[in-house]
């Protein structure tokens, strides 16, 4: 039940955030999507022991969150919460890779710990950037961007429809499971049989709903093609956004700024 409340909350919150009105919100979805993809690819392209070199990349999600007026705590919490899989796979690295690769005074740090740290940092970076992208843009605008990029229409239209009916179906499923929980006093968790019943009936209702939606579409002249009025355009701001971040990512990728900075600092201290 908690997952329902949480997920519905997320759906609503992400949409509400996307309805904001900062310059970053108004930027064309294609520019934001492109830069975020570039960001993710650059971040994961580092070799596996990279830790310090990844640090400058924090700037991008921080920029999106700050300039986009997004609630930082919420995005961070979500970023930390998801995918136990990454951690469960990464956690073996310290056990398996015990070669000391880094010395800090008396401490030796093994490659495994370093690569685990790297995995977690990559994870936080990619996830927070992706979340910030959606919170700034909204799924619908992202779908439109995909459509303009020539993603096959059956798929992009499918994304739009899925996004539209998510909350409707999630609401139905939530009410059904709540009704079960209220009557199932003894068992806290649902058995597989009950699940099949609930999911099956949810499915039947979904099929009926699809039929009604189809009729509603026919009534308004649907002929198999979904048309969207154009909202967006690429202007100077979009070009600047893409070029500036592209250049920064290239700089971060090709030089290890933190190490340079560290040298500079240690030299000054000495």
């Amino acid at each position: 039940m908690n997952s329902f409340a949480a997920n519905s909350f997320d759906l609503g919150t992400m949409d509400a955030l996307a309805a904001g009105n900062t310059p970053l919100h108004r930027l064309d979805a294609r520019a934001k999507l492109l830069v975020t993809l570039l960001f993710i690819v650059t971040v994961v392209s580092f070799e596996k022991y990279s830790v310090s070199a990844l640090m400058p990349f924090v700037l991008y999600p921080v920029f999106l969150i700050a300039a986009g007026d997004l609630p930082a705590g919420y995005i961070l919490k979500k970023a930390l919460w998801v995918s136990p899989f990454a951690l469960s796979v990464g956690i073996f690295n310290p056990l398996l890779d015990r070669q000391i690769v880094l010395h800090l005074g008396e401490f030796g740090i093994s490659g495994g710990w370093l690569s685990l740290t790297s995995i977690l940092i990559r994870f936080a970076l990619t996830v927070s950037a992706a979340l910030a992208l959606v919170a700034l843009t909204g799924v619908n605008a992202i779908c439109e961007a995909l459509m303009k990029w020539g993603v096959p229409r059956p798929f992009s239209v499918q994304l739009l429809f899925l996004n539209r009916f998510l909350s409707v179906l999630a609401g139905e499923a939530g009410r059904m499971t709540r009704a079960r929980a209220l009557r199932g006093f003894r068992k806290r968790k649902m058995g597989i049989g009950t699940f099949v019943q609930i999911a099956g009936h949810l499915l039947l209702r979904a099929v009926d709903r699809a039929e009604r939606v189809y009729r509603a579409m026919l009534c308004r002249g649907f002929d198999g093609r979904i048309r969207l009025a154009g909202h967006s355009h690429i202007g100077g701001r979009e070009v600047f956004f893409v070029t500036a971040w592209g250049a920064l990512f290239a700089l971060f990728r090709l030089t290890n700024l933190p190490v340079e900075l560290g040298y500079l600092l240690t030299r000054i201290i000495e």
């Binding site: 239209v157 429809f161 179906l169 649907f222």
Partner: peptide, 11 residues
């Protein structure tokens, strides 16, 4: 299939 796929995905 257009609405059916959408609604089933949501399902």
């Amino acid at each position: 299939k257009v609405p059916l796929m959408g609604v089933l995905g949501a399902f």
